[in-house]
């Protein structure tokens, strides 16, 4: 391991080698079937440097992220465990961090988590003992100072590459770059953004991020995703928290014959990848082809991002 590298993360290694990174995303199944993860992992293998596995996304019960990460790891991926503060207090979070590190997971994405009301158990208690920024600080303290949040010390610390999310499109826009600064200060080493359809607004956010010098302290992966249908685009525009889908995007999809819409949605995604690559400070893309993982190889190839770097 190089002296600057903190972990055995493939993603960290890609950044260290100065390469433009590609991460993907796998949604675990609402079942105990490991084959679902294996199948998706095989699709992504060779096309992404690391793959997130969501943690009860939109508060719907699914296979736990860390368990699905182990299956994905067996298939040869470098998984990124997503962990939210919605379902765990600081005690449970730290226990799971020790567990995933002991089992050989190298990456952790620290999230506050979607509100329980969006999910299939809307009467559940949302925990939110700590928030994502406090969570980052806890993980960094565990890794770098070998200390739990309470101050107690541990003999073997979790070697995790620490990530966080950022949403340039949520209100108020002016707080979004300073809030990223808080995340970086707390311990974030890589950032995956909300899905970008409003490239101009994202570019303006990146400008503010670079003006603060944050791009030199954290690797920013621009979130992208293909859209399957006009309905999906409308749904994201109106129903999904913190999403910004400009009317032009919907018009573009509506402008092609119905049977061509999903193809156009993929093309749009590739166009956006090309556009965000040109924006100073962008260190990679995070491709979220949710329940449409089979599009990932084609998109990565068409975007000119192959072959992915390989290390010994």
């Amino acid at each position: 391991m190089s002296p600057t590298r903190q972990t055995k993360s493939n993603l960290e290694r890609v950044f260290e080698a100065g390469q433009f990174a590609v991460t993907g995303e796998i949604g675990p199944p609402p079942s105990a079937d490991p084959e679902v993860i294996r199948k998706k992992a095989r699709i992504l293998k060779g096309y992404v440097d690391a793959s997130n596995i969501t943690d009860g996304q939109t508060a719907v019960v699914r296979m736990s992220s860390w368990a699905a990460c182990l299956i994905a790891k067996e298939e040869g991926l470098d998984p990124i465990t997503q962990m939210t503060c919605r379902d765990r207090n600081r005690i449970a979070l730290q226990m799971d961090i020790l567990g995933i590190a002991a089992l050989g997971i190298n990456n952790l994405l620290c999230l506050t988590g979607d509100h329980v009301k969006f999910g299939n158990h809307p009467t559940a208690k949302g925990v939110f003992d700590i928030d994502s920024i406090q969570f980052l600080q806890v993980v960094k303290g565990m890794r770098d100072e070998k200390k739990f949040q309470c101050g107690d010390e541990m003999p073997v610390s979790p070697r995790l590459f620490i990530g966080a999310a950022a949403n340039p499109f949520a209100d108020p826009f002016e707080i979004r770059a300073p809030r990223l600064a808080k995340k970086v200060q707390a311990g974030a080493e890589f950032i995956q953004t909300q899905i970008i359809y409003n490239v101009d607004k994202f570019a303006e956010w990146m400008k503010r991020v670079c003006d603060m010098g944050l791009h030199e302290k954290v690797k920013i992966l621009a979130g992208v995703a293909p859209i399957k249908s006009v309905g999906a685009a409308r749904y994201m525009k109106t129903k999904v928290p913190g999403m910004d889908v400009p009317d032009e995007v919907i018009e573009r999809l509506r402008g092609v014959p119905k049977e061509e819409v999903s193809k156009e949605g993929i093309k749009l995604c590739i166009d956006i990848i090309h556009q965000v690559r040109e924006i100073p400070g962008v260190a990679g893309i995070h491709l979220m082809a949710i329940e449409w993982e089979e599009t990932v190889p084609g998109i990565v190839e068409a975007a000119g991002l192959l072959p992915r770097p390989k290390f010994d």
Binding site: T112, H115, K117, G126, F128, D131, A170, P172
Partner: peptide, 26 residues
């Protein structure tokens, strides 16, 4: 704040409203 967080706002704010209830101010 529906999540009671101290380092807000979270990423779900839209048009100044809470992600969990669009009738409630963030």
């Amino acid at each position: 704040c529906t999540k009671g967080i101290l380092n807000g706002p979270c990423a779900g704010t839209k048009n100044g409203k809470c992600e969990a209830n669009k009738d409630i101010d963030c």
